[in-house]
Structures are given as C-alpha cells and as structure tokens.
C-alpha cells in the first residue's frame, strides 16, 4: 500500500532531480544573512515583545492573563467566531478552488489563460476596496437588493450586509486564489501517463479521477487549505467591514484590549494563543507547503 501511494505521488519523478549537494553547510546561507537580521530585529523582536507582555503585564502576572483569556466568555465567543469563520471559509475555498483549478487544467489554452487572469485579478485589487465593493453590493439599498426588488423577487430588502454570509463571501473571494494556485500547480505536476495506466488497468474515467487524480493532487489542496485557514484566522479588515456583532474575530478583541484599555496582558495572551495556533498549523502543513515551494524543479 505504501508503495502504491509513493508511486502515485506526483512529485516523485521530479524529486529524483536532486540538486548537487556540494557546498553544503552554512556557507549557502550567507546571502540570506541581511534578511535574517532584518526579520529578527523588525519582526521577531516585536512579536516576542507582545508574547513577553502576556507574562509580565501587569507586574508579576505570570499565567493570570492566560486564565482570563481562556475563561472569559467574551474571549471564548470571539475565538469561536474566528475559528468558525476560518473553517467555513477554508472549506468553501477548497471546494470552489479545486473545481476552478480543475477547469483551468482541463481547459484549452485561451480559456486557461483567461481563467488564470480572473484568479489573479483579486491579487491586484486593494483588499480594502474589495471589502468596500461587497458593502456596495450587499447593503439594504445595494446593487443586489435593488436588483431583486426590481425583479419582484422580494418585497423588502434582505438583510445581507453585517451577516456571516457577507463575511464568508468576502473572505472566500480573498482567499480563493491561495487555494487555486497550489492546486493548479499540483495538477500540472500530475503525470498523464498515470491516468492512462489506471485506465489500462481497468478503472473507469470516474474512478481514475477519484482514486488516482484526486489523491495525487491532494498535497496541493492541503497546502491551499492550510494557507487559507491560517490567513483567515488572522483576518481583521473584512469581518470588521462586512460582519455583524456575531462575526467579530479575535483580532478585534486584541485591538480593543490595546487601544481602549491599554491591557497589554490580555492582548499579549490572546496574541500568543493565535500565533501558537498559526505556527502549529504551519508546522503541520509544512510538508505540503514546502513541496510546492522547494519541491521538484522544472
């Protein structure tokens, strides 16, 4: 079974192209030293300060802030909002992203380029503007409601803005490309011979998809899902602009603690918990993320 799985792994043929391992050791990292210094001073230190304050603010708090963060019902509510939204958005992004990437993969050249263009377009439009555009589309007198009213489908405007639906739509739109690109990359690495082999061994087209193609491209989907979930957990702008009171994420609570109460202890504890969650997910998904980034060449 393990042997079957490894031969289905799409990166295996490419992975055989090991780069010559000469000049190993730390010499290879030399050009990255400025980067390490900059990241260390300007990024790691600030995050470490926030984490540090969860233990030291106010004086001698040690673990008190974590007790608060974990037991406070408000914090729990916000944490649940965050995780629920991230889950819904990741699942939606995976379903839509895989469908879309598969359509790209199967399409002819022209359609593929167009689809790629559409997938990349959001990258080039301000995130703020896209969230704003959803408010224009979804508010009570917005484009969608007006359209439905004029068509006579509804009599009174539907409350669409400041709902979970609005947040889900807005964030899925933002995170979809992060799923589409790794999935599509995994599909292009799929050796077509594998499908032909499966057909010759008696599998129908449908079964080839479910039992060969999907498992082989799964690493790309996992990478996209992990990325989408991680990014969703930290999202701030979209839920604030589009969500209702029940959709406000933990980021808002952290910001309030700092801005309104100067409560660096609670903010630090909540931040630490989120960062730990994100890093844990990154570590779990790293195998798949790194495969796309460091894996087979050419």
């Amino acid at each position: 079974m393990a042997g079957v799985l490894t031969t289905l792994d799409p990166t295996v043929p490419g992975a055989a192209v090991r780069r010559p391992g000469h000049r190993r050791g730390l010499g290879g990292a030399l050009p990255a030293v400025p980067l390490l210094v900059v990241l260390g001073l300007l990024f790691v230190v600030p995050v470490a300060v926030v984490v540090g304050r969860s233990f030291t603010y106010p004086d001698g708090a040690t673990l008190a802030n974590y007790r608060t963060a974990l037991t406070d019902p408000v914090a729990r509510q916000f944490a649940w909002n965050t995780v629920r939204t991230a889950l819904v958005v990741s699942v939606a992004s995976c379903l839509l992203g895989y469908t879309y990437a598969y359509a790209m993969y199967r399409a002819g050249r022209t359609v593929r380029v167009l689809l790629l263009f559409c997938a990349l377009l959001p990258f080039w439009t301000s995130l703020l503007v896209r969230s704003y555009a959803w408010t224009v589309l979804l508010r009570d007198r917005g484009v969608l409601n007006e359209l439905l009213l004029q068509l006579g489908v509804i009599d009174a405007p539907l409350p669409l803005l400041r709902t979970s639906l609005a947040v889900t739509l807005g964030m899925t739109q933002i995170l979809l490309p992060f799923v589409i690109l790794p999935v599509y990359a995994a599909m292009t690495r799929f050796p077509p011979d594998l499908a032909l082999a499966a057909r010759s061994l008696g599998a129908s087209r449908r079964r080839v998809f479910w039992e060969v193609f999907l498992p082989a491209t799964m690493p790309g989907l996992v990478a996209g899902a992990v990325l989408a979930f991680i990014l969703a957990v930290g999202y701030y702008i979209t839920p604030v602009l589009l969500g209702g009171p029940g959709d406000q994420p933990i980021a808002v609570l952290i910001e309030n603690a700092v801005q309104q109460r100067g409560d660096w202890g609670t903010a630090g504890a909540l931040s630490t918990l989120v960062v730990v969650l994100v890093l844990a997910l990154l570590a779990l998904g790293w195998r798949f993320l790194a495969k796309g980034l460091l894996g087979a060449r050419r």
């Binding site: 300007l42 990024f43 600030p46 995050v47 470490a48 300060v49 926030v50 990325l227 991680i230 990014l231 957990v233 930290g234 701030y236 980021a251 952290i254 910001e255 700092v258 660096w264 903010a267 931040s271 989120v274 960062v275 994100v278 990154l282």
Partner: peptide, 13 residues
C-alpha cells in the same frame, strides 16, 4: 501568515 493585528501592535510598541 502571522495575524496582522498581532504584528501591528508588536511593531507599534
């Protein structure tokens, strides 16, 4: 991947 708000308050301070 780090939550922007956490990065923001850390850099701010």
């Amino acid at each position: 991947v780090a939550p922007p708000v956490v990065v923001a308050i850390g850099m701010y301070t």
